[in-house]
Design a protein around this nucleic acid. Sequence first.
DNA 1: TTATTTATTTGCAGTATGCAAGTATTAGCG
DNA 2: CGCTAATACTTGCATACTGCAAATAAATAA
Lengths: 149, 149
Amino acid sequence: MHDLREEIQIMTRRLGFLNRNCCRTDEHDLSPIQSSILFEIERQHAPSMQQVAETLGTDITTFSRQVQALIKLGLVKKTPNPDDRRIQLLSLTTEGRQTAARIDAEMNAYLKDVFDKLSEEEQETVFRSIQLLNNAMLKSDRCCTPFPG
Amino acid sequence: MHDLREEIQIMTRRLGFLNRNCCRTDEHDLSPIQSSILFEIERQHAPSMQQVAETLGTDITTFSRQVQALIKLGLVKKTPNPDDRRIQLLSLTTEGRQTAARIDAEMNAYLKDVFDKLSEEEQETVFRSIQLLNNAMLKSDRCCTPFPG
DNA sequence: TTATTTATTTGCAGTATGCAAGTATTAGCG
DNA sequence: CGCTAATACTTGCATACTGCAAATAAATAA
């Protein structure tokens, strides 16, 4: 298991490059962070500010401003939770959903291009390995959380 | 191969969290970017500014300042190439090598902690999959380079 | 009711970013 | 050789991201 760190470093970097170029639709020119906010809002059902901020590991104050920017772009909506009006529930506007869908399609196209370099069997193995790694990182408490204990 | 993007998104994020907490030794409190600069300078043999900047996908002007900061910290050295004095060759100082080694050890400890959640066989599979993915990304020209063609 | 906790927002100060322009050195070409 | 163009790198500047501290607003506890 020699050079594990090196391989991971390289993978992370290349996936970072991928991310950079995958957030531009004709209408909007989003940053990777903005793109991942759309992604998470869609993934979680009507999450609060804090939930998404924690998922992404960004400070709530920074996150608050990022959301403001996305609202100004007309992609995100904030609705106070009727049961507790301190909490703002986040959701995508119609345009936000469209934008997220376009970005998702583009990302998938890029990923397909990468995976097409592999055999069917390798594709399966790699996909399954990513799941394994994700689970392992989740189990580790010394590692891979925004604010380690 | 359902939810591939989602798994990759999550993996990238968790590896990003890992990276954040792995750049602090007792002596220095480096940013992930600074840490990766040390890593690359060591990996490439006496690289020029441009080479490292391009590897990392950062603008040369930003990179120039990052290197200045590392020089001020006493971790990096710049030596003009005698054959072409426009070129500055980068190398680590003794302290830079020590710092890089400490970060490397810490990163490996974190990675070990993660991989220990997997069976021997799974570890092998995951490692090999990362290599496969790295090669696939390298082959793809639509993807995963800092400035796509 | 009043004090405390929780969710979010704003003030501010420090840092990172990249484009445009600048300097220094080398290469090309008459 | 002498001049222009190209290359490697650095600085000026304007912008954006960051997070801590403090403020606001709403809910809970006492």
